[in-house]
Design a protein around this nucleic acid. Structure first.
Lengths: 348, 348
DNA sequence: TCGGCCTGTTATAACGATGTATAGCGCGGT
DNA sequence: ACCGCGCTATACATCGTTATAACAGGCCGA
């Protein structure tokens, strides 16, 4: 009680219990060969001194911290909030704690993650890049355990977990085509080649249009900008103002779709009667939007759990894993969730 | 290059540069009295060995970690995603990193935070409790720096940052009354006394009704359950199914309001023509909902920045702060944001 | 010329835990 | 009796850093 902030150490406990330092350590760590009497005496001393192990010292000695870092664009984006939720959950199940960093779409900040001291304060890193991509593949050759989350970087020298972006984009378009839509607009095509989610989803979308013999009108493709609601609203507005009259809109993520639907509602355009809209990510918000928005469910929980599992293997916490294993890629299956923004009232 | 995972230590650098250990430390930490020649030699050795300081060892020696823990219910709730975003941002500005924990409304998990080793792996804790409240005030007497976020616990033995919940609840009701609504329903009244946000907002709401001489119909008060969208939808449905015909609904947070508006839209009830709805928190989603939802903006960024600032003071990073200062309470000002869910088309 | 101050560098002791090696004890088998 | 083994507890080294004290040399003023 005397020292308020500076808590007791094992040494203090040892002295109080009249045993050696190591015996206290043994009690704390559940070492089996302890006489009940000693154990009781030490536990008594521990609780009377309010002792708690110093995790930092333990970490130093053991060479690991039990911490992993999650780097995302920003948590206020619903998808990343939900993803962080799942990652924290999955990490917790394995006894790991998550430390957070945001890069806010800043390329330098993203590169900094790869150059960082990543390995010294944390055991490994989960990274959702946006502007660092294919062209920077070599930058992903780092000397700490790293798993890329969400982006597909071919030939990257590290593990990554992603989803079938091409097939997802194709499914979006096929869904609209299947409902008889032909003048299909696209929102979310990036103007820089690094943003692989955008490129891949677009690749699938274009393929689906071609396969159906439907021409993609360049005037119906709306472009660059971060994938957030206001951008979705603005791009939708620009399309309509330019005189375009699509009957279906494919948005490469849900935030864009939510912005687009908002803009359509604001103008009194009926969804889906006049224009059907489909998003991508299946954030909870799409289900409570009005109308509820059709979307691609990428299996967020599965992605998070798989990424944490891969990272745990790389960190070396799984004896069964061969550390010389080369970079792995895991593509998680998706699912199309059809709601009223494409199906209409019959679907709700 | 020989040792891939096990990185070089200061000792290795010292040997390579032909200087003492402490000199390397001095270079790393920018100690001024160093000959340029020595400094250059050490820096050369550092980069050729790819040396990076071991933050854990530094932390042990210095007795602090540069880490703070943020405990929230769950990140997939938009408000907490946005709050975490702001906290990470504010912490980053002060050189602190945020570590995340979720309690998922589990009372035991919440109490665990207060009993935890909070102080040993992190320098301090920011905590958003839900089910630990007034009755547990003494449990907040912990021996590590702690700032309560969002809840008001009177006489709590630790700092807290909150908003004027009573005045906020009053403002919600006054806004609806001012628009001529009289049959006002309430969604989000907790059935347990611990959830102070609910109690306080309700207190303000009741006061506003009384001041206006409007009776609160008990049949129009919908209750318990976590403050998430599906609960808002269900409570709204229950109200309507019970035959209640309110002309205005006060929701004690935005998730409830979003669920309620969703349910109303689903049933074809016009918002606000038939029923006006107002929420609380001003999450971005309310602005992109259709119709956009009126709400109370609690000043999330301000709250986050203030909480981090208070915590930094408690941790002792500010020399100007007197550590014997008693528990402090900071109430951040709010702002009513009127949108179409109460104003109608004229507001949009 | 001497004591004191500044500069540049070092040896050594912490920080608080865990791993290794080992010592004492009692016990059963030969 | 003696050896060897299992149980209990210990002393000491160690993880990689930073703080402290001290040292040698040069320069200053008295």
């Amino acid at each position: 009680m005397a020292r308020s902030r500076a808590s007791a150490t094992m040494k203090d406990v040892a002295r109080a219990a009249g045993v050696s330092l190591k015996t206290v350590s043994n009690v704390v760590n559940g070492y089996p060969y302890l006489s009940p009497a000693t154990k009781a005496r030490v536990e008594e001393a521990i609780s009377s001194l309010g002792y708690r192990v110093n995790v930092t010292a333990r970490n130093l000695r053991q060479g690991s911290t039990g911490l992993i870092k999650l780097v995302v664009p920003e948590l206020r984006i619903p998808y990343f909030g939900e993803l962080a939720d799942s990652v924290v959950e999955a990490a917790g199940r394995r006894g790991l704690t998550v430390l957070l960093q945001q890069h806010r779409y800043d390329r330098e900040a993203e590169l900094g993650v790869l150059r960082s001291d990543g390995g010294s304060q944390v055991d490994g890193v989960l990274f959702s890049p946006v502007h660092v991509g294919q062209a920077d593949a070599e930058a992903f050759r780092v000397d700490f355990p790293l798993v890329i989350l969400g982006e597909s970087i071919f030939g990257a020298p590290c593990d990554h977990v992603s989803m079938r972006n091409i097939e997802g984009g194709r499914a979006q378009v096929e869904h609209l085509l299947g409902l008889g839509r032909r003048r299909i607009a696209i929102i979310g095509l990036s103007d820089v080649p690094d943003v692989s989610s955008s490129r891949l989803r677009h690749k699938g979308a274009v393929a689906a249009l071609e396969a159906a013999g439907v021409a993609l009108d360049p005037a119906l493709v709306a472009g660059p900008g971060p994938w957030v609601r206001p951008v979705g609203a603005r791009l939708m507005a620009d399309l309509l103002d330019s005189g375009a009259r699509p009957d279906g809109v494919v948005c490469y993520n849900d935030a864009l779709a939510l912005g687009a639907v908002h803009e359509l509602s604001r103008r009194g355009v009926r969804v889906p009667d006049d224009i059907a809209v489909i998003g991508f990510d299946n954030v909870e918000e799409t289900n409570y939007s009005w109308p509820p928005i059709s979307t691609i469910d990428p299996g967020r929980e599965t992605i998070a759990a798989a990424a944490v599992a891969m990272l745990v293997e790389r960190i070396g916490l799984e004896q069964s894993f061969d550390p010389s294993t080369g970079p792995r890629e895991l593509l998680v299956d998706f699912r199309l969730v059809a709601r009223q923004s494409t199906l209409g009232a019959t679907g709700g």
